[in-house]
Amino acid sequence: MYLTRFRFNTARTGARRLLTSPQILHAAVMQSFANVPALPDGNSPRVLWRLDRNANNQVLLYIVSPDRPDLTHIVEQAGWPTTGSWDSFAYAPFLDKLTAGDIWTFRLTANPVHSIRTRDGEPTKRTAHITVRHQLGWLLKQQERAGFTICEQPKELPRPTDMDEYQVVVHDRRSLDFTKKDPARSSKINNVQILTVTYDGRLRIDDPDKVRAVLTTGLGKAKAYGCGLMTLAPAQ
């Protein structure tokens, strides 16, 4: 497994093209591998990616993948071809040292959704959580299955609402709207709408194996479009 980081040169036309279309960026990421990655079965490592738009106007692309990627084509389109590059790190040593009880800061961009049924007898429909409260609730519901617990705020700090109970911030809400060809009917174009949010916070590892699975297979839906990739960093 590899963790890769690349910085976009946002002044370039190619960068703007990639950053405004999750479908085009997904294709560019997948083209970074000489051998086409096998289709994931839900339990095996897969190619995950995420865009981080930082406060200093840096836009970073993170990729977690079973194989080391070659981002030459992305550098040529959207980076600094003569002075810029990308960094890839072996991920296994980091994953192997995860231990129950450890505290980490985390970042996750996800597509928090739930299934609803408007009428009895109708099939359920996947719908995005719109409010911050429900988006946080979605993350809290993932905890047990994902093997971690979101840290609570220290008891001495005020908690005006239940939203202030946890050490997590929900931000950077974005609506992605694009078209996609129907693989079953090549002439049909589907309109796709995906709501994404980013979570920054602190967590405690309860089950290291489950957390390793989340870090390598993703969390939630819309993984092909920049969702599901969680990264950890040492807690301050």
Rank of each mutant, 00 (worst) to 15 (best):
L39P: 03
P40D: 14
P40R: 14
D41L: 06
N43H: 14
S44E: 14
S44T: 14
P45E: 03
P45H: 07
V47F: 12
L48W: 06
W49C: 06
W49Q: 02
L51R: 07
D52C: 08
R53A: 13
N54S: 14
A55S: 01
N57M: 08
V59C: 04
V59T: 05
V59Q: 01
L60M: 13
L61Q: 10
L61E: 13
L61Y: 12
Y62T: 10
Y62R: 05
I63T: 05
V64S: 07
P66N: 13
D67W: 04
D67E: 14
R68H: 00
D70E: 05
L71P: 02
L71W: 09
L71V: 10
T72A: 04
H73G: 00
H73V: 04
H73A: 04
I74V: 10
I74C: 01
Q77C: 07
A78F: 09
W80D: 11
P81D: 04
P81F: 00
P81L: 07
T82R: 12
T82H: 11
T82M: 15
G84T: 09
S85P: 01
W86V: 09
W86D: 03
D87P: 01
D87K: 13
D87I: 11
D87Q: 11
F89K: 09
A90K: 02
A90C: 01
Y91W: 12
P93D: 10
P93T: 08
F94C: 00
F94K: 08
D96E: 13
K97T: 15
K97V: 14
K97Y: 11
K97I: 15
K97L: 15
L98S: 02
L98T: 02
L98M: 02
